[in-house]
Amino acid sequence: MPFTLATWNINSVRLREPIVLKLLQEEAPDVLCLQECKSPVDKIPLEGFAALGYTHMIARGQKGYNGVAILSKLPIKEVGSEDFAALGHARHIAGQLENGVTIHNFYVPAGGDLPDREVNEKFGQKLDYLTEMRDWFHGAAPEKAILVGDLNIAPREDDVWDHKKLLKIVSHTPIEVEHLAQVQDAGNWVDITRQDIPEGLLYSWWSYRAKDWVAADKGRRLDHVWATGDIANAGHGSRVLRDARGWEKPSDHAPVFASFDL
């Protein structure tokens, strides 16, 4: 069953419902994983999504913050969610398609501004969250699974606009990159985006602070699509829909796509 999947930090699904609908109409992925929905589940605007064929949804939500959802044309059943680091945040939801593929949708904490857990509690929470992700996947090795989401880390030198300048900036510090690598190793995860696009600068996030984000192009690849080793070879067609960063009232993230022949 071939299918195409997209992941997108939407930065408020209600505020940006028009561009979610635009994406669904123009790109028509079979599955769309959203992060930072900033909405209780019962307030997510399902009617417009369902009218376009996205009649299945699983989600975790909370008012004004965090939140993850999976919209799908394909039947999907919820198979769990985890509150890593006991933060009480809606940051993970997992669903299973009828072909047995499990999709994990994550919104990893951003980590605040200072990469020092002694003075920045949020940075410590981010590292603890990643550590518990690692331990969880060690304890229950995933099979036939895809992990997507805003992982809030750009791991490679060519995942950021300037590696040296960002080494002490949250999202690209060596300790974060190491923690993410441990999560990846624990689940035997393969970075599908970089499997398909192995070389070159690649970004999925551009700050709102840039007056002209296109000209500055100071991006980071914070959004990821991974798959377990047993199905990684089925992944292909990865791309970042950069144009979406320039849509009306945009998110600061662009959607990341991949297709799977399973």
Rank of each mutant, 00 (worst) to 15 (best):
Leu166Tyr: 08
Val177Glu: 10
Ser251Arg: 07
Gly237Leu: 03
Tyr208Gln: 09
Ala28Cys: 12
Gly100Gln: 02
Leu74Thr: 00
Glu17Ile: 02
Lys168Gly: 12
Val20Lys: 00
Pro2Asn: 12
Ser81Asn: 03
Asp83Gly: 04
Gly88Ile: 00
Ser207Leu: 09
Val177Ser: 11
Ala258Tyr: 03
Trp205Ile: 10
Trp213Pro: 12
Val31Ser: 00
Lys249Gly: 09
Arg60His: 03
Val225His: 05
Ile76Ser: 00
Arg14Phe: 07
Asp135Met: 11
Leu52Cys: 07
Val225Asp: 05
Gln195Met: 14
Trp226Lys: 08
Phe123Tyr: 11
Asp128Ala: 15
Pro109Gly: 05
Leu114Thr: 14
Phe257Glu: 05
Ile169His: 15
Leu32Phe: 01
Asp191Ile: 07
Ala28Pro: 03
Ser204Leu: 04
Trp161Gly: 12
His163Pro: 02
Pro18Ile: 03
Ala50Ser: 08
His224Ile: 01
Val13Leu: 01
Met1Cys: 13
Glu98Cys: 05
Gln62Met: 10
His172Asp: 06
Glu82Asn: 11
Val256Thr: 02
Leu52Pro: 08
His163Trp: 12
Leu167Asn: 14
Tyr208Asp: 03
Asp191Glu: 05
Pro40Val: 04
Ala216Arg: 14
Ala227Phe: 04
Gly200Lys: 08
Leu15Val: 14
Asp162Arg: 11
Phe260Ser: 04
Pro115Arg: 07
Gly64Leu: 04
Arg194Trp: 04
Glu78Val: 00
Lys218Gly: 10
Tyr129Pro: 08
Leu46Lys: 13
Val108Asp: 05
Asn188Arg: 15
Leu5Pro: 00
Gly200Ile: 06
His89Trp: 11
Leu87Ala: 12
Arg134Ala: 14
Ile231Lys: 01
Asp217Met: 09
Leu5Thr: 00
Asp128Ile: 05
His92Gly: 03
Leu130Val: 06
Glu176Thr: 11
Pro45Phe: 03
Ala28Val: 03
Ala85Val: 10
Arg16Pro: 04
Gln195Phe: 06
Arg209His: 09
His104Gly: 01
Asp158Val: 07
Asp212Trp: 09
Glu248Met: 12
Leu202Tyr: 15
Ile146Trp: 00
Asp230Ala: 05
Ile58Met: 03
Ala181Leu: 09
His172Ser: 13
Ala140Trp: 10
Cys37Trp: 00
Arg91Ile: 01
Ala51Trp: 09
Ala186Ile: 06
Leu147Asp: 04
Arg134Gly: 11
Leu167Arg: 14
Ala90His: 05
Glu98Ala: 10
Asp243Tyr: 08
Val240Phe: 03
Val183Glu: 02
Leu32Ser: 01
Glu17Val: 02
Ser207Glu: 07
Val119Lys: 06
Met57Gly: 00
Gly112Ser: 08
Glu47Lys: 15
Asp113Trp: 13
Gly235Met: 07
Asp217Ser: 11
Lys63Trp: 08
Asn120Leu: 10
Thr55Phe: 02
Ile58Val: 09
Leu114Lys: 15
Ala50Asn: 01
Ala145Gln: 12
Ser72Gly: 02
Ser251Met: 07
Thr193Trp: 13
Ala50Met: 02
Gln35Leu: 10
Leu21Met: 05
Leu127Lys: 14
Lys77Gly: 12
Glu26Asp: 08
